[in-house]
Design a binder for these strands. Structure first.
Lengths: 344, 344
DNA sequence: CGCCTTTATGCAATCGATTACATTCCAACT
DNA sequence: AGTTGGAATGTAATCGATTGCATAAAGGCG
């Protein structure tokens, strides 16, 4: 068809009005008369007009897009969060830019560039292990009130956070195992320095202590949320002389790796040890045995984060008392945890 | 610091040259003298200049970003493909926009809008089930030579495709099972109408026939790549009176769901039936039992797709003889497949 | 020395939408 | 009738980078 797509000028010509009127009609229909509104609508249809976002961005200093920063694109944990974010953004005409921390750093970009070169109006950061220097730059940026964290976050910063009830989830997990009769409970942690790892670990220690459980230091096994770390943790568990009868892993991937490695060494879950995870990935239900887990509603986290960000973008100078959101978690009990059977 | 970020004007003033010279220095350093090059570089540093992408986009009619369209954001299968794409794009200063078919349609957007409103310079489409009307629009668009498909594609269109060797992968799979002594082999397919499903299914039929295997119609079980469909397929398998001794699933998720459901009904893999998948997800290795699969290098698919797209964007009118790329697959044999043990 | 070529730079228009300000028109009120 | 106010629209500057064309400076050659 037409080799060029049409512009405001074209619409204005067809409708017999000025570009200003067309622009107003499109962005603020109330201020024009009904008759022009109709004429413009008609002309828009006739010319198949689409707004040029670059031009609008340049003039309004709004990119109409949001950057989502992931620690690692290859981790399936994040996909439903993206889905949630996109679900909220896309009807509002916002686009979603994706980047991973690794690649941003590898390519020599700086995060703040996304603001400074007008590529994004806001950021949702899912990486709590961001370099502290980078974070400092972000905090001091004029756009700092258009940055929010989700899932993970960074302590001692003022960014709002959308997260799940990590402490509560851990407490539920420990009590689930306790209620099944387990008194020796181990924990496989997330990566060192990660705020989720830390939360869940300290909640674990608190709760076992509150229940008066014995907790040997070697029952807290360092991991990093990955399948591979789960395997290694299993080896550590196997090597113990006094083995806990239940293990709470800080992520489902850890738990799956843990069970896989146990199986390779002919241990059986839950007969030899009860295992549970955190996240409730789709696969948890379909593992053998199905994995007991703490469910976090990742879709909801994504939507809540996007919603909060959009509010801040819309009213950048308003006071946002709203300092974040906490999404509830729930226990999904499955076959990987079972009543303790007293040793033969 | 400065409330406004600096512009070309600022740099020009500091360097004592015109904006034209600064622009040229930045985008085409060879045409300016060494001394200005140095002065400008110095001024850029001094003013902490970042290019305004909206302005550049408006003037050059280039968005410097690429849209990646996924059928479904929540599917972990795609994450490493994104990683591969991003790995290629990000060093070139290109951003990656993500959208899912569902949401594009739900929000009333049209794909072509991404071109027409100057949001994207190209598209990588990972959805082979796109509405045919949409595809037609894309084919007739002036930007049609900046669209490529990856993994999935649509028959009878001229878009280049980056895909894995589906036929060859299927052949390898069937032969692997054959070599283990299996003569009754079932297949769980992908979704109806999907080009991958079709390729793999017809290759399966061809290969079993080439090996002179018996193939009852009920041994080809309809699925849709998902865990849930795998479970359903397992129920169908269980219900058969003459059960195949091996099952080739069109995706790993199918295979995992299949095995999970079997386990719930007290069948054992591979003792009762050998199972294999396609994709080699990270989890395949860590399942119980570890899943034999056909590995496709998703990172490489992503990178190849991005590379091809960038070439087309750089030289839009060149003839690109290069009509796509085929990424090799390989067999990863694990414990879910085993030598046939003759029935007791 | 004068003319031509080459190289380096500047000037100013341009991309397309938005918006402050100015203008026009009409109704309503004194 | 004259004045005022408000609603609707137009004019033109603006956002910031790019680039065709013009100009200037420097070098080459007879």
């Amino acid at each position: 068809m037409g080799s060029k797509s049409s512009t405001l000028q074209d619409v204005a010509r067809v409708a017999g009005v000025s570009t200003a009127t067309v622009s107003r009609t499109l962005s603020n229909p109330d201020v024009v008369s009904e008759s022009t509104r109709i004429r413009v609508a008609q002309a828009v249809k006739e010319t198949d007009y689409r707004i040029n976002r670059a031009a609008r961005s340049l003039r309004t200093q709004r990119a109409h897009s949001v950057l989502v920063l992931l620690p690692n694109l290859a981790n399936p944990f994040f996909s439903s969060i993206l889905e949630g974010i996109s679900r909220h953004l896309s009807p509002k005409g916002y686009s979603m830019l994706i980047a991973s921390t690794n690649q941003v750093q590898a390519s020599g970009e700086r995060l703040i560039d996304y603001f400074e070169d007008a590529r994004a109006d806001g950021m949702i950061i899912l990486d709590g292990s961001l370099d502290s220097h980078l974070v400092e730059i972000l905090e001091n940026a004029p756009q700092s009130n258009r940055i929010i964290f989700a899932c993970e976050w960074i302590d001692n910063t003022s960014f709002p956070v959308v997260r799940c009830e990590n402490k509560q989830g851990t407490r539920i997990a420990v009590n689930h195992l306790y209620d099944l009769g387990h008194r020796k409970i181990a924990h496989v942690t997330g990566p060192d320095g990660n705020v989720l790892s830390h939360r869940r670990k300290s909640a674990f220690i608190e709760e076992t202590s509150a229940l008066n459980l014995d907790l040997k230091p070697e029952w807290v096994i360092d991991g990093d949320f990955s399948l591979a770390a789960g395997c290694q943790a299993a080896q550590r568990w196997i090597a113990l002389t006094d083995r806990p009868t239940a293990v709470f892993c800080a992520s489902d991937q850890l738990a799956l790796g843990f069970m896989a490695e146990l199986s390779r060494h002919n241990f059986t879950v839950p007969d030899d040890v009860s295992v549970m995870g955190f996240d409730d990935l789709d696969l948890a239900e379909q593992y053998i045995p199905p994995l007991t887990s703490i469910k976090q509603d990742r879709l909801m986290i994504g939507e809540a984060a996007a919603k909060m960000l959009m509010e801040r973008i819309a009213a950048p100078h308003a006071k946002h008392s709203n300092d974040g959101a906490v999404i509830p978690v729930s226990l999904i009990a499955r076959a990987s945890t079972a009543q303790l059977r007293s040793a033969a």
